[in-house]
Design a protein around this nucleic acid. Structure first.
Lengths: 216, 216
DNA sequence: TGACTATGACTGTCCGGTCAGTCAATTGCC
DNA sequence: GGCAATTGACTGACCGGACAGTCATAGTCA
């Protein structure tokens, strides 16, 4: 948590700091991110950052949590809870892709809590990151199973796990340097992503989910 | 590449160094791994390491490539190329799980080339890491499509991508601190992995692959 | 003896965190 | 309104620890 001072400064300064911090942590990783460099990028003094946060670690945790909320807002914000699971999932894939193409830094932050030397952080954050989506997916599957939209012989937990796994692979392939190269190698595409490569990817992945869930 | 000296020293020393390096890089990540600490763990002097390798970076790349070969040998070594794709995939899942439970460090090394600040490395290594499996899977799918074991309307590249994606999620869930927590949250299991949790995971995942590939 | 390997103290650099002092804005007093 | 006092945000030089890489010397073996 930031110190109170952080909430008293001008909003645009606060925003700038959070934005630059997210980008820097995403570019260089927690350990390699330099507080002095962040200060200069955000246009504040290094000392100021320590007026706002207890430590680099505090700053990092706050930036991650803030990014998580922004991602959730962007993806779930305009979703009607009454939509059936298939429409919701497609919405999540499309909004997720759109949001993360504009703000890849937030996905990279997410990916990074699972990298080496981050055990300390993953123990603190993994649960709170995953719980929201896990609960949402399980609830949705159960609800639509009762409505007859989902096969009644699927294992709810495993199905939720699979849906989310496919989403992670999908979204990570759009952003991470390694997974982009991997996707290009598998799909034999060169250069950057266009809608023409994104669309079949969404289609193919949601088809797999439909196969898993839809009654025969 | 190591200097020649590295291949002239006693084999057990060479092995010990590679083993400890893999573990240390996996535990702490490239940047946080300390060469002096590696030296003391491996029972050699820090200077010696610089007699064997040009730099920490050289050492790291060699350790990764060496780990990749060991993993491949463990997984593909005793596989009969004449087996059908379903048997091969099951073999890969089981051998992969077995090997990586004994040597989680190699999977963590793999996972790490996709983390922040590792772009430099992923540009060098991602292709050579992924190409082997990608080619193998595509070849296999094409072959068994001709043999009538795989639906002839699947997109070979996308199917190979999906099979490998499911494998990555599966194997990563057994090892990475974050993905272990995530798996436990989804499947609502506590404590460590037993065969009782591993088996349905393999079963569920290979079922999805069968759904994707098997003729109706 | 000579060719090669082993060693660990040393060096220069980098970076998280500190702190003594500055300055602008706000408050309180006449 | 004008002035002084107070507050608290801002600053960057500085400190100490960590760590990659070096090198002069010691050890080893043929």
């Amino acid at each position: 948590m930031p110190k109170e001072t952080f909430f008293k400064i001008a909003e645009d300064k606060r925003e700038r700091l959070l934005r630059e911090a997210a980008c820097l942590f995403a570019e260089r990783g927690y350990n390699q991110a330099d507080v002095a460099q962040l200060a200069s990028r955000a246009g504040v003094a290094k000392g100021s950052i320590y007026n706002y946060f207890e430590s680099k670690e505090d700053l990092y945790l706050y930036v991650c949590r803030d990014g998580m909320q922004r991602s959730r807002e962007a993806i779930y914000g305009d979703m009607d809870p009454e939509w059936d699971i298939y429409r919701q999932i497609e919405h999540i894939f499309r909004q997720g892709a759109r949001f993360i193409q504009g703000h890849p830094e937030y996905l990279i932050l997410y990916a990074n809590i699972s990298s080496a030397g981050m055990k300390r952080f993953s123990e603190q954050m993994s649960l709170e990151v995953e719980k929201y989506t896990a609960d949402h997916l399980k609830r949705l599957i159960r609800r639509d199973m009762q409505r007859g939209l989902v096969r009644d012989d699927v294992d709810v937990n495993f199905a939720a796990f699979m849906v989310n796994s496919l989403y992670i692979i999908f979204i990570t392939s759009l952003v991470s340097s390694h997974f982009k190269i991997r996707l290009q190698e598998y799909l034999e595409i060169d250069g950057d992503f266009t809608d023409a490569t994104l669309e079949p990817l969404i289609q193919g992945t949601t088809d797999m989910i439909n196969n898993l869930l839809k009654p025969v």
